[in-house]
């Protein structure tokens, strides 16, 4: 991971109303540092529809249009088209949605926009449940997790939806995962995305201390452990879904430690944790195989030169 300068400019101010340790808030701060002031946001129903602050206040120094839950990608498509018809080709339009608005209710309009290759950045800040409504399961909630709609007696049995696979299947020019625990990598990816035309999808891992039953001060540590335990690999998919590149240059940490630190997994028995460990390892191996496969495709560059 190459070091990158973190811009000193701030486009997020104090006065936001996020919970302590909110990963989504750190994510916005970093994303805007990377994208700069010529950025317009479209935000569907999610924590960020509240975090920005109540009317007439805003904690952001960029324009922001709130839209309906399932409509982030389609609204952003229209906004970009409208700005271009005004002659403004410079403004980066970014849809900024939670996992519910991306994995569940918004996946139709996201798929439509990606298939059309709309010139937008779509960021999903993933806190792995409907946190704004008070911790209900989404299709991004990991297997084994407690939420208010997957209580301990029947915790989440199905694995998290593989959104990166879904987006890669759309053959869009840029896909990446990013974590608030790795701000340099985070900012590099957003800067890179900014320079690419077409649909760019960035999946941001954003811990939610409130929903994960986690002390707020452990938010960033948890985000780091998600990466080092291979629960949330940092990767890039370029060449329209064909080239996969996974970051491997880290000291692995046990999945078990990551699980044990969070209250939402407290009920899991030893064998259940073991099953999750196996699943994480299998997914990791599949990912590496996919990376390896993509290296051998004819006509693609062997190395991505800027990471």
């Amino acid at each position: 991971m190459k070091p990158a300068r973190i811009p000193e400019e701030e486009y997020m101010t104090s006065g936001h109303v996020a919970c302590q340790g909110c990963g989504a808030t750190q994510a916005m701060r970093f994303a805007l540092k990377a994208l700069g002031p010529k950025t317009a946001l479209v935000i569907p129903a999610c924590c960020w529809s509240v975090i920005d602050g109540p009317f007439p206040h805003s904690s952001l120094r960029v324009p922001l249009f709130h839209t309906a839950f399932e409509a982030a990608a389609s609204t952003a498509s229209g906004l970009k088209a409208g700005l271009e018809m005004r002659g403004d080709t410079e403004t980066t339009v970014m849809a900024w949605a939670g996992d519910g608005g991306t994995f569940d209710i918004g996946i139709q309009s996201l798929s439509g926009a990606a298939e059309r290759n709309e010139d937008i950045i779509y960021t999903c800040y993933d806190n792995e449940a409907y946190m704004n409504t008070g911790i209900q399961r989404s299709s991004s909630t990991p297997v084994g997790a407690w939420t208010t709609t997957t209580p301990v007696a029947h915790y989440k049995k199905r694995p998290k939806k593989k959104i990166i696979d879904i987006m890669a299947a759309h053959s869009i020019p840029y896909i990446a995962t990013a974590s608030v625990a790795f701000p340099e990598d985070f900012i590099r990816k957003f800067k890179k995305a900014k320079e690419i035309k077409g649909t760019r999808f960035i999946h941001v891992f954003a811990p939610c201390p409130t929903g994960w039953k986690l002390p707020p001060e452990l938010s960033v540590a948890m985000a780091r452990q998600a990466v080092t335990s291979k629960v949330f690999p940092l990767l890039e998919v370029t060449e329209h879904g064909k080239r996969w590149k996974v970051w491997k240059d880290f000291e692995p940490t046990p999945v078990r430690d990551y699980i044990k630190a969070q209250g939402r997994f407290r009920h899991l028995k030893d064998e259940e944790i073991k099953a999750i460990e196996e699943e994480v390892e299998n997914n990791w191996q599949l990912l590496l195989a996919r990376e390896q496969m993509s290296m051998n495709l004819p006509g693609l560059n062997k190395e991505d030169d800027d990471s």
Partner: peptide, 19 residues
């Protein structure tokens, strides 16, 4: 903008009008 549903058609138009 040739969208995938009427819901997206109107939201795209909402976005454009907001511009």
């Amino acid at each position: 903008i040739k969208v995938e549903s009427e819901h997206s058609a109107l939201t795209a138009v909402v976005g454009a009008s907001a511009a």
